[in-house]
Design a protein around this nucleic acid. Sequence first.
DNA 1: TATGAATGAGCGTTCATTCAT
DNA 2: AATGAATGAACGCTCATTCAT
Lengths: 166, 166, 166, 166
Amino acid sequence: MRDLAKEIGIQSGSLFHHYASKQEILRNVVEQTILLNLELMKLSLGQNEGIEDKLHALILCELQSILVDTGAEMAVLVYEWRGLNEQNQAQILTLRDNYEQLWLDILAQAYAQKIISIEPTLLRRLLTGAISWTINWYKPSGDLTLDELAQQTLSLALKSEKKLEI
Amino acid sequence: MRDLAKEIGIQSGSLFHHYASKQEILRNVVEQTILLNLELMKLSLGQNEGIEDKLHALILCELQSILVDTGAEMAVLVYEWRGLNEQNQAQILTLRDNYEQLWLDILAQAYAQKIISIEPTLLRRLLTGAISWTINWYKPSGDLTLDELAQQTLSLALKSEKKLEI
Amino acid sequence: MRDLAKEIGIQSGSLFHHYASKQEILRNVVEQTILLNLELMKLSLGQNEGIEDKLHALILCELQSILVDTGAEMAVLVYEWRGLNEQNQAQILTLRDNYEQLWLDILAQAYAQKIISIEPTLLRRLLTGAISWTINWYKPSGDLTLDELAQQTLSLALKSEKKLEI
Amino acid sequence: MRDLAKEIGIQSGSLFHHYASKQEILRNVVEQTILLNLELMKLSLGQNEGIEDKLHALILCELQSILVDTGAEMAVLVYEWRGLNEQNQAQILTLRDNYEQLWLDILAQAYAQKIISIEPTLLRRLLTGAISWTINWYKPSGDLTLDELAQQTLSLALKSEKKLEI
DNA sequence: TATGAATGAGCGTTCATTCAT
DNA sequence: AATGAATGAACGCTCATTCAT
């Protein structure tokens, strides 16, 4: 809290005029981050047509939010989640469900079209892990571009008919 | 430290008779856990012949260590890693490298045989994320058995020739 | 720290709102004490003319600061000196040098005038010991007044021509 | 206690078979040190004839015990004195008195012979401070030999008839 | 709105001491 | 005589939080 206050340029005690507790700040960060990424994803989905492209868009979006745009906030979301008490977690649940539903809808369509072969809920969980873990190793300065990373992550999920044809 | 001591049934000060610091305890947990899992994996690799089976064995082993055997310790390994200072991290690095090399060797062979199509280092990273994330959602009491989970995770990694043949 | 806080009437944690560490408190005590005594000495030197009188003034001043005015603080200065780390000791060094220079200047003049016969640096060291040790035995309630003590201590330092004349 | 035990080569707990407490060790160190120095002083006094020479011997002896022979123990004696409780201090008192009496006897004779002009008890106290303080500044590797230091310290105490004659 | 002094529980750690073996 | 595990009070310090101003 003191570090946060210093960064803003106020005293730590003053933070409590705006937020009742550290938990509330945390909850707000998580809320705002989910809301922002929800909008970004909807936008990106609207700009892509095919299911495969939409899936690629989701993956790229989530990678960008973790590795570029809102990395720090996403780290909070991914790792400080436990720090929230039940009540605060509940308050976020609806938002989180909306966000996850976006994924599950696309994955369900892909599953129906046999583009993917793993049950959507499970696949989403596996992808969540693969994507969120990138925060621990991905270096933007390295050889792998974000788009290539998204492409490779997508290829994990997909059946590989197309590739075999090549 | 006080909670840990209480769980053991001694006073917090007594812990320091056995370990010089919290860091040393942490380092020992990590070390022992890696060593144990290294042995379990070698054993399991020895009991499987084909590369695909070996890969399945690795995945199952890591899932078991996270979700069953040494879950708490693995959580320390995955999430408390940052808590170790440079010196202690260095002491563990060799062990960790040995462990990862086991994965990379198998993945390299699979890549050479075109069983997988993602470059081994990258694939390992994606799998690390997918597997370690299970700690956040997998419930042993649910429908999905550990072996099924391993099978599905394996299918992520594999090209899908076989499935196409069916 | 807890005792100190209790004496002030606050909680021990509150001390750290005013000072970053125990060392900083220690350093401040030492600094303020030296500064105060420096001023007191300059004042006293200004009120005395002859070298012998000035020397007497210095001795009396130092005795007063140890035995009356700032006894506790001087005890810190004399005995807790080792508790300060290098950096903090360095911060005080200049002040301390100023203080000692006052002594050495007077002693150098006395030496030049052959009022004293021991080399000033050494004599100062011997006097420092003799004076600071008084904290271990002097009782204000006893027969010896502070002024008499100063007089006797002065007589240690002086050649004794005058006394011989008597 | 742990450091002390380590130096001896036993466990810290084992120290308590030989001494009931840290205080007792401290008391023994002080006792033995006083006894040793008492003997050394008696010996040295026996080897010198005139009062002035005897006084010089006492000063040299005490300087040697502080700066050379039993420096560490003397540091304990000088500075850890406060660490002893009343009971332990009382147990040492007789020894300490014997030691001090040696000084006071010589000083009394010197006072009677008008070799010194400060009352013995007070002079002893001033000398105690001057001598014990040397532990904070004297470097054996420097220009000043121990004998010269003793000579200069002696000259503090003495009236300076002789010097005037020169 | 903001300050800044204060709280009080908690942290990792130290240390003289005890005691069963 | 010695071990080594354990104690328990104390240490300097941190930190989310409160509150009078």
